[in-house]
Design a protein around this nucleic acid. Structure first.
Lengths: 170, 170
DNA sequence: CAGTTTATGTCAGCCTTGTTGACACTCCAA
DNA sequence: TTGGAGTGTCAACAAGGCTGACATAAACTG
């Protein structure tokens, strides 16, 4: 294997959780859990003409109303062409409003319409229901650990975005 | 919001971790962390002519050598046409061997070639390095919680697949 | 004021990876 | 022998990534 951690006992009990086998189980857990995580919204979206990309846009616009296109681009980590395709349909369908910036008229500030908020709620309710069940089943300490590990897995810029959103929600 | 958990204090301190805000932060953490989780292998794969789908196939074939196409189909949760396209290129490129079953000649048993194993190692080393850093940073208790929550988030069938793989690795 | 940079939108084209539907072949089991 | 399971393959299509090129308006800079 990668670095010779075949035998858990080598470094003593405290590092048992860092064996290759433990790490592999961790990545498989991420894979299967992410599937579950997206399953419920995906089902809702497939009935409408939308996909996961629309969900992400709606989520982050709902989370930070008035955000600019550029900001959304940074959070989502896609190209403006990709995002624009999604935004165009959401605006055309009346779920998102794009208004010219007052201070800087080049910017567009994005908001959800009432209809957009309704879909956002529907999607996040579905997702939260699963997460809530999982959190409740696992208990508060497990949840704290879950969040700590996820945060440590992020790229630094993503961690910054995440922290900014976390603050804004308080 | 969904079920009136606006005010954390309502149900007492023990359920503070189940507020809508906490759940939203949890889903955002999943989103950002999954990006980090796939970033390193993605970089390696984009140099070759492969994508994430190839990585997944290689991973699970490496994990369960001799597995059948149907079994892989169940684990990956895609159609046989999707999987077949990926397998075809991997077989053509000499990374995967498909051998006719001895007991049941309809089945194909999949194995990695030496070259396939080399790529598998390269990819999972990259992924494990990040996971190892995150695990080490978070500590054993956080890791335990992380795994508990992820497992609780899975669909039941996925949880079963995950458990089967976990056992086989012991 | 002229020129550059920034923010955004849009067109065209390509890739991966998912989907459905249809069909063929082999082989097992009743 | 017939039905069904496991597998492979063809065709067509869609979502959602990507790059490159170009347009526009506004802001900034010398």
């Amino acid at each position: 294997m990668a670095d010779g951690r075949h035998s858990p006992a080598v470094r003593g009990d405290t590092l048992l959780f860092l064996t290759d086998e433990q790490l592999r189980q961790g990545s498989e857990a991420m894979f299967f859990a992410y599937r579950g995580f997206t399953a419920d919204p995906d089902r809702i979206l497939s009935d409408l003409a939308y996909g996961r990309a629309h969900h992400r846009a709606i989520h982050f616009i709902g989370r930070a109303p008035g955000t600019t296109v550029n900001n959304l681009l940074n959070i989502l980590g896609v190209t403006k062409q990709s995002l624009n395709r999604v935004l165009r349909t959401l605006i055309a369908d009346g779920l998102v409003l794009s208004e010219v910036g007052r201070a800087d008229k080049r910017e567009r500030h994005l908001h959800l319409t009432e209809e957009g908020r309704a879909l956002e709620r529907k999607l996040s309710d579905a997702q939260r229901a699963r997460l809530r069940a999982a959190f409740r089943e696992a208990g508060p300490e497990a949840v704290a650990g879950f969040r700590t590990v996820l945060e440590a897995m992020m790229d630094p810029e993503m961690r910054a975005s995440y922290a900014r959103l976390k603050e804004s929600g308080t």
